[in-house]
Design a protein around this nucleic acid. Structure first.
Length: 436
RNA sequence: GGGCUCGUAGUGAAGUUGGCCUAUCACGCCUCCCUGUCACGGAGGAGAUCGCCGGUUCGAAUCCGGUCGGGCCCGCCA
């Protein structure tokens, strides 16, 4: 019977067998400490028998071990318990030293990220790297719970598409049995269609962007958290997002204290309602504060995004900000303009700790209007397979609805405090990395 | 796509106004010592044709040209 390392503290006085990877060897002469890693964590084994220690000669970290011994309580042991009188059995010997260190923090300086990713299959065994993805898994779990609490249905939409979807971002083209197909850059049209079915839906899945962006916040493949719901206003959407971000943070700091400590992560300051500031006002404040004029610009500069978050943290007790009142000239065809001020789109971005993690908007739900906007704003062909079925759903009756897309890795990056979004991806894909 | 910047043992760095470099340090690895370590400690050792090609020079890690591969910022976006 296998005992997990996390269970040994509750098995004092019992003989147990743990299985895992050799994580650390400390030879002290007459006694040797061995640390074994399994899925639940680490356990210390004390070996005094020279013959037992000899079994590990020249065996590298990563060697697969089975260890049988007596669990003894000792304040000097990590976790208050360790295994004594151990009989070691090497299940899978490893004689090659790992290319990167597993038992000490790996370098995350920007200049060395290439090495970090090149050796990911091994480097991810490092507990501190693992922690990133334990946190990511918990974020997914918290989001799923939050959406379910709010009566959303989870869906999975196709990523192989007949044609480009939203326009704007570049899409990957590929051969599909002699026809041209594209990879989805978002589930936008499908999740809107599903509003007509379930009213409230969400999806968490990979999307693909063929943009030649070489920055700390872009990847060509990332996990998009998408939600869409009907019979709502932009205000409802902002409330949903405010609640969501807080739910994730609360859950994370409750469930993953150890993992967060690895990264010295600080719980974000998030009010019940994240403050909303119009783009024009941000431009004005930024211009006043820095002397660099951005007034009239149609988007926020990256530096403005960083600046407004600092401002909000100091003055509004929030590390996140909604940016409202985007110029309608920058609207996508499926967006809805504001009823009272049609020069603005009914759109928000959510900026968290200096980076845009969410874009959301109300969608144009009137068939005639969205059809016209498609022709006028996107030059789209209503009969093209990329638009035809979307329009079919719109014509079949759509309530006022809206939704958002959020970059999972960006959220994890900012919760932890990583410098590059790629550090929050198991196997990141960017403009010049396709492997591992 | 534009601008800037970097490439030195398995890993991270120093050296880069040419010679003192037979290339330095730390981690890791190997050998030995060490009975309470937990980033253990101590002694010794192996490991690098300084990304690659060409040039300048008596002499190149260092200067020049080319080339390959990274990174950061901007644009665009999540």
């Amino acid at each position: 019977m296998r005992t997990l390392t996390k269970e040994i503290a509750s098995k004092i006085g019992q003989t147990v067998t743990v299985q895992g990877w050799l994580h650390k060897k400390r030879l002290m002469g007459g006694l040797t400490f061995i640390v074994v890693r399994d899925r639940s964590g680490l356990a210390q084994v004390l070996v005094k028998d020279k013959d037992e220690v000899e079994k590990l000669r020249e065996h590298q970290i990563g060697t697969v071990l089975s260890v049988e011994g007596l669990v003894v309580a000792d304040d000097r042991a990590p976790g208050g318990a360790e295994i004594h009188d151990a009989k070691l059995s090497v299940e899978v010997p490893v004689m090659e030293q790992p290319p990167v260190e597993i038992d000490k923090p790996l370098d995350h300086d920007s200049g060395t990220l290439d090495t970090l990713f090149e050796y990911r299959p091994v480097g991810l065994r490092n507990p501190r790297e693992q922690a990133v993805f334990k946190i990511q898994a918990e974020v997914i779990e918290a989001l799923r719970q939050y959406f379910r609490r709010n009566d959303f249905t989870e869906v999975h939409t196709p990523k192989l598409l007949a044609a480009a979807t939203e326009g704007g971002a570049e899409v990957f083209k590929m051969d599909y049995f002699g026809k041209e197909a594209t990879l989805a850059q978002s589930p936008q049209f499908y999740k809107q269609m599903m509003v007509g079915v379930f009213e409230r839906v969400y999806e968490m899945g990979s999307v693909y962007r063929a943009e030649p962006s070489a920055t700390t916040r872009h990847m060509t493949e990332y996990v998009s958290v998408d939600a869409e719901f009907g019979f709502v206003t932009l205000s409802d959407l902002m409330d949903l997002l405010s609640g969501m971000l807080r739910a994730v943070a609360d859950d994370l700091w409750e469930k993953c204290p150890k993992e967060l400590t690895h990264w010295k992560a600080e719980k974000p300051l998030l009010p019940a309602k994240i403050p909303a500031i119009s783009m024009a006002e941000i431009h004005q404040k930024y211009t006043d504060a820095t002397g660099t004029s951005t007034i009239g610009e149609k988007d926020l500069r990256p530096d403005e995004e960083r600046w407004i978050c600092e401002y909000a943290k100091e003055n509004l007790d929030s590390e996140a900000v909604f940016v409202t009142d985007w110029p309608a000239a920058e609207m996508k065809f499926y967006h809805k303009a504001q009823d009272e001020h049609p020069e603005f789109a009914d759109r928000i971005d959510l900026i968290f700790r200096g980076i845009e993690i969410v874009t959301g908007s109300m969608r144009e739900n009137r068939y005639d209007v969205v059809l016209q906007q498609l022709k006028d704003m996107a030059g789209g062909d209503p009969e093209a397979p990329g638009f035809k079925y979307f329009l079919m759903a719109m014509q079949a009756g759509m309530p006022p609805h809206g939704g958002f897309g959020m970059g999972l890795e960006r959220l994890v990056q900012k919760m932890i405090g990583l410098k590059n979004v790629k550090e929050a991806s198991l196997f990141p894909r960017d403009i010049n990395r396709l492997a591992p």
